[in-house]
């Protein structure tokens, strides 16, 4: 990739005792790219992602995220990225507005800015009527849309999404991907994991991790050609073995 990289990973490895969770992986993600990070359960995706967002120290290798080294500049990495996961996103017993204010504060936004951002965000999501409702009362799809917007509050350059659409209804799932496209269009880099293989097709490039290694990395189109199949689901089934 000739253009500027958002993420550069070189020989990244993480071992836990005798077990190698991430085994010498290398790849680059270009600025503004939607990069799909796929793999079976237990393939090492979460461990790799934790190293990239600066919360887990690699055993060896180098990773640079938003031009910061994940080991020596972990705090700068955290400030430059947005992160949302399926498991923890928002506080269920705060309202949408309160969640935005809370996370805005955590990200160090000024009070006045938080006010402006809150208005913008609620407008963009069309959530006027729900703004003062508890997040816990929202359908999962809406929660995930709000969580995604919250992860953008501090204007990060790269957004990490860990299975953002698991269990979400099909229409909302697609609206979520339209939000992803929009942000990519605005120049943000998206790093996303998913178990929905149709979503893998929406990515500019995807990597598939198998037993700690990156077994394939290319555009969905090239991968389908390479493995002589019609869908990413078939590519995945060909590559990913069950490690248990």
């Amino acid at each position: 990739m000739n253009k500027e990289n958002a993420i550069t990973v070189k020989d990244l490895t993480k071992t836990f005792g005798a077990f190698t969770a991430v085994n010498n992986i290398s790849f680059e993600v270009g600025k503004g790219e939607v990069f799909g990070f796929l793999g079976a359960n237990g393939a090492g995706k979460t461990t790799a992602m934790k190293m990239l967002i600066g919360i887990l120290k690699p055993t060896s290798g180098i990773a640079t995220v938003a031009n910061f080294d994940v080991i020596s500049h972990a705090e700068d990495v955290k400030k430059s990225i947005g992160y949302m996961s399926q498991r923890f996103s928002l506080y269920n017993d705060l309202t949408i507005k309160e969640n935005i204010t809370f996370f805005g504060g955590i990200y160090g936004l000024k009070k006045a800015d938080i006010k402006v951002k809150t208005k913008e965000l609620i407008e963009e999501l069309g959530l006027h009527d729900e703004a003062n409702k508890l997040v816990g009362a929202l359908p999962l799809g809406w929660k995930q849309k709000v969580a995604f917007s919250v992860s953008l509050l501090h204007n990060p350059q790269i957004i990490f999404l860990d299975e953002p659409t698991g269990g979400v209804d099909p229409i909302t799932r697609r609206q979520f991907w339209e939000m992803i496209y929009r942000e990519a269009h605005r120049g943000k880099t998206i790093f996303v994991t998913t178990h929905y293989m149709d979503e893998a097709e929406y990515c500019d490039r995807v990597s598939i991790m198998v037993e700690g290694k990156i077994e394939a990395l290319d555009t969905p189109k090239n991968l389908k050609t390479l493995y002589k199949v019609d869908t990413m689901n078939q590519v995945f089934l060909k590559l990913a073995r069950n490690i248990e």
Partner: peptide, 10 residues
């Protein structure tokens, strides 16, 4: 839910 395509198939 949350299970990868290979394990789901099995």
């Amino acid at each position: 839910t949350g299970v990868d395509p290979v394990s789901r198939k099995e």
